[in-house]
């Protein structure tokens, strides 16, 4: 099996950019969970880290918006944001064009996907990398699901995309770690920023941990918007990972939430979770 790790994490820019405004005890517990996630990934000795993100208009705009895209370059740059604002310096992040292309070709046999030979990372990828590959020494394959500019891909297609990634990974000799990063409920960058629907988050995480396809795909965008904000549209990144956790025999992986705590100044219920393969 070439998929050696699968997990999810938060990526809100406040996690690094407004770190000094959070409750230190809660913040540090969250950072510790991120560190443990890094150790868990490193223990699997991956050749590449595939990050399924929900970028925020850093590369893709409504003039040509792919529902699904995968990076195909030997390096990437980021963050696009002001480094002082985000709390992360501008860096060059290694990629692996060959692995990307293999992955893309496999995925294309089951799902439609765009590819991009240029990609500027925003906080959606840079914040996770800041914790998970702090030395930027692990090649990254960025994956984007359009979660920002409707119309958005139906969740059934997101599930299919996640399964395509799993099948692609299993068909490749490389050891592939997979991290999905998106919000649970949040209203990012709006006057409601800081609002968090903890009940909704916990219900979703329960569905995610059990790999409950029916429940996960039952979330309509209309209901998600009302209950979980426009940031809730990013659940697609998490659903894709849940789908990738399903084995070739149809057995869903079981998930564990290692950390969940609403941190309003970070604008999201901060989450670290992983899947244990059957």
């Amino acid at each position: 099996m070439a998929l050696v790790y699968a997990g999810i994490c938060s990526h809100a820019p406040g996690i690094t950019g407004r770190a000094d405004q959070a409750d230190p005890a809660v913040r540090d517990s969250f950072y510790a969970a991120f560190d443990q996630m890094r150790l868990d990934i490193e223990a699997t000795k991956p050749d590449v880290l595939v990050v399924i993100a929900a970028e925020h208009f850093a590369n893709f705009f409504m003039n040509n918006m792919p529902s699904y895209a995968i990076g195909m370059a030997d390096s990437y740059t980021g963050p696009i944001e002001d480094p002082g604002w985000l709390g992360i310096d501008k860096v060059k992040v290694p990629g692996d064009r060959t692995i990307s292309e293999q992955l893309i070709r496999h995925v294309m046999t089951q799902s439609d996907v765009s590819y991009a030979e240029e990609w500027k990372f925003d906080h959606g990828i840079m914040v996770p990398l800041h914790f998970l590959t702090p030395r930027y020494d692990l090649p990254v394959v960025p994956v984007n699901i359009n979660c920002q500019g409707p119309p958005l891909s139906p969740l059934s297609r997101t599930w299919q995309f996640g399964q395509s990634l799993r099948d692609a990974a299993d068909a490749m000799p490389e050891r592939i770690a997979l991290v999905g990063t998106g919000g649970l409920s949040h209203w990012p960058a709006t006057p409601d920023s800081g609002k968090i629907n903890v009940e909704w988050d916990q219900r979703f995480l329960k569905q995610w941990c059990s790999g409950d396809k029916e429940s996960l795909l039952a979330h309509s965008d209309e209901a998600t918007y009302l209950d979980a904000g426009q940031g809730g549209f990013e659940l697609r990144t998490l659903i894709a990972v849940a789908a990738a956790g399903v084995s070739s025999t149809g057995v869903p992986a079981q998930g564990t939430v290692h950390f969940y705590e609403p941190i309003p100044i970070f604008s999201v219920g901060c989450t670290i979770a992983s899947l244990k393969f059957a």
């Binding site: 820019p13 406040g14 208009f57 944001e81 604002w85 920002q148 990012p188 960058a189």
Partner: peptide, 17 residues
């Protein structure tokens, strides 16, 4: 304007959160 676009514009202008 989408907040994910506006937020970056505000940061560019050094507008505090």
């Amino acid at each position: 304007v989408n907040g994910q676009i506006l937020m970056h514009f505000a940061a560019f202008h050094q507008i505090e959160w």
